[in-house]
Design a protein around this nucleic acid. Structure first.
Lengths: 329, 329
DNA sequence: TTGTATGCGTTATCAA
DNA sequence: TTGATAACGCATACAA
């Protein structure tokens, strides 16, 4: 691989001059500039980012670290971050990691956005610094160099519970995901709190545990229906997929949704509108989430533009799965 | 940020020794090792990847470069690559770029997988080398250091056309995506070739151009129906989203799918089964695609394990949208 | 306007 | 078993 030195030699100038040319310095004469550029082109010169970063102690890259590429729909979230990152003249790399987190540790990026439960709080706490700010999307962390950009899960759950209570439900069950999920658990908390506010009680046996997948929702609901004699008239699920699985289980038992049991989901994935019955759920603006996360990071990174104290937009969307006899199409 | 030198000083040994300890050399006594590790821990030492990469001229990172995070469903594809990359002891970074391609150019990665029409053939051609192999998923390129791992689009289209002809269709239209898409265009070609093989003709006016989105499919079909007096009895779409949009346009005109016009899609996105009518489509094993792409890259990178001459699995799935009076559920 | 020289943090060669 | 040191490719302070 051709280096600056090679280009310099070929152009008959010094390395410094070559470097100046490459960085567009105004001091260089048009003539030398052309010579150098020609030499660079001929040799197929490409700058070495590692050397550059090492020298400048700055990469102009931010990292987005997630736990894996399956699971929730990251597309919009990623898009929201990407757009903002480019707007700030940086690049983004996305990477999944489950134990080493090498790319997070070895100073490849100037800052990072975290949505990865594999990464321990303690690690993030020790990593964050003035020069290496972090934004977390999946935990509560007290640290001057870590900002949180969290979904208003409890706010969403309040809307769900309000809706169900208005529909006349008194006993409402909950389908939770894995306990490792921050959003999942805060949805559960929000649910309980909203029930309490309404003066309704929640029986532990109406709390089902699954793992956010459709099949897990189906299985845990099947087991529940087999075991229990009487059921809640409605179930709230921590995400859409599990709600869909649970609905299938209910239907397989010969019962009807929402007539026998009503359901609500969370996230508003594309499928929700097309599912039968269409799924009542909470629409989350993931792209906005990504934008705000990135903006928050750049604020810490460059101390410019004030922090937008903006809450992520969330909206309950009633559909067939929780509306008795309405909205059939 | 603490460096090896800092750790060395604190531990009272040389930088070299410290480096050995960090890299787990067997030559170091247990005693010095502990001293060094303790010092490193106390200082919160983290290796500097840029310095390491610069020195070793190797990053153990491969890059996956795509055009954006919206659009097709990348999740499975990404997962397929990720799993294989980890299995080979590397890390993967995913990045979207539309003009500078800095991360691709500046030697941050040891090799790359490309699915990004923004990157010109010429650039890839000049970049690829023994030390920097490339795998392309979206183009045909003749270069000893670039491997292609392409979807069997034509094979899939043959199955689609076979099916439609068996269903009795003679005049079949096509909904194409943007011309920049390699897969889209090769699906169109495959479609035309299969028609020709069957002895069927294809009228240019039955070729609609959209951009892979559902709304574009709806709009172009609406326009077509308004303009033309008689229609094909079936339309093949280059992807699922456009097919769904087009179906809506037909339904809005008061016509029935598949009775008046049948439709097929391509990709088998989740929604296809839930759409009404459920969409006949071609299921593409995207995870397998990712795995093969990564394996191919590692083959070039490390000259080990033979190249699997494996074609990506593709299967036509007939559903309601192209079956007359069958499979209603 | 251009060149010389230094150092970024690490690895690895060689010597001790 | 450990230490001194050169080198990786580049940017930049300073000199010319």
């Amino acid at each position: 691989m051709a280096t600056l030195k090679d280009v310099a030699k070929k152009a008959g100038v010094s390395v410094a001059t070559t470097s100046y040319v490459m960085n567009g310095s105004k001091l260089i004469t048009e003539e030398t500039k052309e010579k150098v550029l020609a030499a660079a082109k001929e040799l197929g010169y490409r700058p070495n980012g590692n050397a550059k970063n090492l020298k400048k102690n700055k990469t102009h890259i931010i990292g987005f670290f997630l736990s894996g590429f399956t699971g929730p729909f990251f597309n919009e979230l990623l898009e929201g971050i990407q757009v903002t990152v480019i707007k700030n003249g940086y690049e983004m790399v996305v990477c999944a990691s489950d134990d080493k987190h090498r790319l997070l540790l070895e100073q490849y990026v100037d800052g990072a956005i975290i949505l990865n439960y594999h990464i321990a709080d303690e690690l993030l706490d020790s990593l964050a610094s003035e020069k290496f700010p972090l934004v977390v999307l999946d935990r509560d962390l007290e640290n001057p160099h870590i900002s949180q950009v969290l979904l208003p899960n409890k706010h969403g759950m309040k809307q769900v519970v309000d809706h169900l209570v208005e529909e006349g439900h008194q006993r409402i069950g909950f389908i939770a995901g894995s306990e490792e999920s921050f959003d999942g658990e805060s949805r559960l908390e929000g649910f309980k709190e909203s029930l309490a506010t309404r003066g309704l009680s929640f029986d532990k046996k109406d709390l089902l545990r699954a793992d956010f997948t459709e099949i897990s929702g189906l299985l845990c609901m099947k087991e529940y229906l087999d075991k229990e004699a009487d059921y809640p008239t409605a179930f709230v699920s921590a995400n859409d997929e599990m709600a869909m699985g649970a609905i299938k289980a209910v239907q397989q038992k010969g019962m009807k949704v929402p007539e026998d049991i009503a359901f609500t989901g969370f996230d508003d994935i594309d499928l929700s509108r097309y599912f039968h019955p269409s799924l009542s759920t909470v629409c989350v603006q993931k792209k906005q989430w990504g934008r705000i996360a990135a903006e928050t990071l750049f604020h810490m990174l460059e101390k410019k533009h004030a922090v937008a104290e903006e809450e992520i937009t969330i909206e309950f969307i009633p559909r067939e799965s929780s509306l008795k006899g309405v909205m059939r199409d």
